[in-house]
């Protein structure tokens, strides 16, 4: 498998990937690092709510990364799934009295089905037309949510979203009312999804995705059904994003219209890119640093988003690997320096 990914990761004409995933060497290391981060976040940060928000957006960025970093699909459609996950789980809990896990499953299902539809439509086009199509569909979803204000609350958002306890039948096992308890749930879900995504990306399926990203025509010539692979990634990504959306609604007890806005897609994309595309740990880094930066700066300098614009440009021009890429090259340099010391 190594030789195969190596072959497709070699030089191509023109289409430079955002970043080359350094997944093979770092695989066990980043899963461990992820677990350490997940455990330490609520200890280090002033509030568990902030930690929860970081993991929810890390989940969304990770899903976006599967599309952008591993398959090379730049989609502005992630807000559709994020928003739909939030609305559907919230409506399910409000109107059908769904429990916690049924609401989350509903979000997963809705996300997967929507992503199947969006994927089926969008992969009919490539390049800029693909991007435009995802953009048009997101705008449609937004205006649909805005129009259906009886259901979604329109501009005011959907209020009073509950946060049901973990229950078995009618007996409550764990109440999630406290921020730390809810963080625990989100952390477990995030870790499961991270490990699952890591396994998927390092499987032959993942290698095929990279092959599609590197050179679609060549992957097709090797006999892979490109459409099928792209749709599968879409479904996977959509389901995870919708789950993140549902958790976000539970965190806020509220599902704002901004969940399904184009801006949400942009925000998730920016987290993914600044963290480092093609690295799952990078998504955690990206989401973490941007949510934190926002939390710290928004009070003292409301225009902190300016920095994101600068960072976005800097990443594309100077540092394709994003934060993760910067970190790994630093580590490598340090390692090389220390081996030089030994020789000397």
């Amino acid at each position: 498998m190594d030789t195969k990914t190596g072959a497709v990761a070699s030089k191509r004409n023109g289409a430079t990937p955002l970043a080359r995933p350094g997944r093979i060497r770092w695989a066990p290391g980043t899963t461990l690092a992820m677990l350490v981060v997940v455990v330490l976040l609520p200890v280090v940060l002033p509030s568990a709510t902030l930690a929860t928000e970081i993991l929810i957006f890390a989940m969304a960025a990770l899903a976006c990364n599967l599309l952008l970093g591993y398959t090379g699909l730049l989609s502005f459609g992630q807000a559709i799934f994020f928003g739909a996950g939030a609305y559907c789980s919230a409506l399910g809990m409000l109107h059908w009295q769904l429990g916690l896990f049924s609401a989350l499953l509903l979000a997963l299902g809705v996300g997967a089905v929507l992503a199947l539809l969006v994927g089926l439509l969008c992969i009919r086009r490539k390049g800029i037309y693909f991007v435009m199509l995802t953009l048009a569909l997101t705008q449609m979803a937004y205006f649909l949510a805005y129009t259906l204000s009886d259901w979604t609350g329109g501009d005011n958002g959907l209020l009073g979203v509950p946060r049901p306890p973990i229950a078995l039948g009618d007996t409550t096992l764990v109440s999630l009312a406290s921020p730390l308890a809810f963080y625990g749930l989100v952390a477990v879900l995030f870790a499961v999804i991270y490990i699952m995504a890591r396994r998927i990306t390092s499987s032959p399926f993942g290698s095929t995705l990279l092959a599609i990203r590197e050179n679609e025509a060549r992957a097709a010539a090797l006999g892979y059904d490109i459409r099928l692979f792209k749709i599968m990634v879409f479904v996977l990504s959509g389901a995870i994003t919708a789950l993140a959306g549902a958790l976000y609604a539970m965190l806020l007890n509220f599902a704002p219209l901004s969940n399904i806005e184009l801006l949400m897609s942009e925000q998730i994309l920016i987290m993914t890119i600044i963290g480092g595309t093609g690295s799952l740990f990078g998504s955690l880094l990206g989401a973490g640093s941007i949510v934190l930066l926002g939390d710290i700066l928004s009070a003292i300098w409301p225009r902190w988003m300016l920095l994101l614009g600068v960072a976005l440009i800097a990443v594309v021009i100077f540092m394709r690997g994003g934060l993760w890429g910067g970190l790994t090259s630093l580590l490598q340099r340090a390692r090389r320096a220390s081996s030089h010391d030994k020789e000397a």
Binding site: G309, I313, V316
Partner: peptide
């Protein structure tokens, strides 16, 4: 797209 998105934000 990413670079011009950054410019727009700035």
């Amino acid at each position: 797209i990413l670079v011009t998105l950054g410019i727009a934000l700035i």
